[in-house]
Computed example of a mutant assay.
Amino acid sequence: MTGGRSRLPLPPVLMYHSISPSAEPDPHALRVHPARLDRHLGLLRRLGLRGVPLTELVRAAERGAAAGLVGLTFDDGYTDFLDHAVPVLRRHGMAGTVYAVAGLLGGTNDWDTGPRFRIMDAGQLRAVAAAGQEVGSHTLTHARLAGADPAVLAAEVGESRRVLEDVLQAEVPGFCYPYGSYDDAAADAVRAAGYDNACVTGDYEPGDRVTLPRCYVSPRDTRAHLVARLVRHSVRLRRAVARDAARPAAPVAGAGR
């Protein structure tokens, strides 16, 4: 993994979960209708923006070439991503990152209460990758990582990457913290496992390469809501960068001797 622990300012990164036309109860507000996703992506195009996977966005930002890009992420790796999100993304000439729960491939979201969502199996993940979408890790079991002991972190963070790389026979550069739950030890585990980048939810601190903030998208978000989320990201990022600049510089090791 490249990069350090300083802030990496990025354009907005949108966070979706299930993309499905189902009318079943959705108590956790995870399900966005494919037609709504289509309207969201159509709006991005009209604004002159293109949705890309998070790793592509990070690397474009490092080159100073991220203008006009927006990150698209989809948590949990549900089968409806392949069935409903991929066709919409393809129609708009866009791509995103889907974060799979590596220890539950072919299973369901048994970490959650409420409706059951099917999780993609190995073959479906390979089909997603073949369709030009990025696959990232969302741990082995969708575990909360803040406060986890080192053995749990090593398995949930490191082993999940190995499982997915074995499935895909390709590098898995991205990680996503379930529930946005992380602490310094979890972030260090992500670095140690060799990930290129990792994302949280709406937390803008510290905002480095393995704690990149995202904007949650609600099932009821209209195009106006989406514009507001894009603007809010710019405001929050600008304030975070200003706070960074106002902090005293860290002392240089050995200075004053």
Rank of each mutant, 00 (worst) to 15 (best):
Pro12Gly: 01
Pro12Tyr: 05
Pro12Val: 05
Leu14Met: 12
Leu14Glu: 02
Tyr16His: 10
Tyr16Asn: 00
His17Ala: 00
Ile19Gly: 01
Ile19Asp: 01
Ser22Gly: 07
Ser22Thr: 14
Glu24Tyr: 05
Pro25Gly: 11
Pro25Ala: 15
Asp26Glu: 02
Asp26Ala: 01
Pro27Cys: 02
His28Lys: 07
Ala29Val: 06
Leu30Tyr: 03
Arg31Asn: 03
Ala35Gly: 12
Arg36Ile: 07
Leu37Phe: 00
Leu44Asn: 03
Leu44Thr: 09
Arg46Glu: 14
Arg46Pro: 07
Gly48Phe: 02
Arg50His: 08
Arg50Met: 02
Leu54Lys: 01
Leu54Thr: 09
Val58Tyr: 04
Ala60Val: 07
Ala60Leu: 11
Ala61Met: 05
Glu62Asn: 08
Gly64Pro: 12
Gly64Ile: 10
Ala66Phe: 06
Ala67Asn: 05
Leu69Asp: 06
Leu69Ser: 02
Val70Pro: 12
Val70Ala: 03
Leu72Asp: 11
Thr73Asp: 03
Phe74Ile: 00
Gly77Val: 07
Asp80Ala: 00
Phe81Tyr: 15
Asp83Gly: 06
Asp83Ala: 15
His84Ser: 14
Ala85Lys: 00
Pro87Met: 13
Leu89Pro: 03
Leu89Gly: 06
Met94Ala: 15
Ala95Glu: 08
Gly96Ala: 15
Gly96Phe: 06
Val98Phe: 05
Val98Leu: 03
Tyr99Leu: 12
Tyr99Gln: 12
Ala100Tyr: 12
Ala100Thr: 12
Ala100Asn: 09
Ala100Gly: 13
Val101Arg: 02
Val101Pro: 10
Leu105Gly: 05
Leu105Val: 09
Leu105Pro: 04
Gly106Ile: 05
Gly106Met: 11
Gly106Lys: 10
Gly106Asp: 13
Gly106His: 10
Thr108Arg: 13
Trp111Ser: 01
Asp112Tyr: 06
Asp112Leu: 09
Thr113Cys: 09
Gly114Arg: 09
Gly114Leu: 05
Pro115Ser: 10
Pro115Tyr: 11
